[in-house]
Design a binder for these strands. Sequence first.
DNA 1: TATTGTTATACTCTATAACTATA
DNA 2: TATAGTTATAGAGTATAACAATA
Lengths: 176, 176
Amino acid sequence: MARQAARKAERDDPAAAGPGQVKLGWLGGTVGYYLRTAQEAAFEAFARRANGADARPWRFAILALIDANPGITQGDLAAAIRRKTSSLTPSLDQLVRQGCVIRARAQADRRAYALTLTAKGKASMQALLASAVEHERDLDRLVGRENRADFIRILRRIAEGLAQKPGRPNRGERTE
Amino acid sequence: MARQAARKAERDDPAAAGPGQVKLGWLGGTVGYYLRTAQEAAFEAFARRANGADARPWRFAILALIDANPGITQGDLAAAIRRKTSSLTPSLDQLVRQGCVIRARAQADRRAYALTLTAKGKASMQALLASAVEHERDLDRLVGRENRADFIRILRRIAEGLAQKPGRPNRGERTE
DNA sequence: TATTGTTATACTCTATAACTATA
DNA sequence: TATAGTTATAGAGTATAACAATA
């Protein structure tokens, strides 16, 4: 019975063990499939880790990026996490409402907002950072210390190499 | 003007170049951040590649998995892509409606469905496979042939190592 | 005219819970 | 009672388009 319950959980819970007996076929030799499953697993693991702190998807990244770039505009912040500004607005609204972020008109361009963290925002970031550090330690253990730098380098190459090139062709650089 | 438009596109389009001048700070040394951005870039690149074929998120994986495991049940299929069966139902409904997949009651357990591909389903899979092969070639180029096997191995370790262990503690690690 | 950001709106994906049919 | 799968429903997260304010 406990046995059966465990089997059910293993089958039914998508966060569970994984494919098991299922043959992955061509997919199993693929970077794409594992890139996705690894990312999802890592993402969920971080959310579990940060349980208690509010760990919504990009919250930590947003706080960390504002911290690293005080006065950053919403457009630049959106670009850094590859989202539209309109997608960012609700998250920032929440952060402002919570007193974590200050939205001040940029002096140079009064259409733009300059974002900065409040003390509370820094504290919230620190709390998430603690989870993130542990999470990275987990990842390190799995990646292997000696592979870490190479692994990150490859991920960066993928992110940059496959990014949608807006309009312009792929490397000849002539902007037509 | 073309210049300004390009700058706007680069700022506004989340699929564009990337952070640019933005300092990533701690995030920039992190596996997590690049794992996510790389996965998203790869995912979007595949969708672009398969443009024309219906490349909705897991469609190719679903078809490929049914092909590799004829008669697979919906529960096992859901587990392989780490989703709930209820999340899979709409996709399968569509595939059945399109005449790509046959849902037949399993003889062993008449509650379950045994899934198989029709000729049309195989054809649809082949079309997506062509895009997937090209896509993997792109990834190979970025990953580097000599790194590919290690890279996949690491991704697998992450996916398996960080998967939610249902109930039971983490392999002897005290749950504190 | 172009650009920054907001608002309104819609869409996709996923999960939870209640349910049916079978075991 | 337990399990396979469906249905109804709700909630994230994101995008597009129209808009206001500023450049």
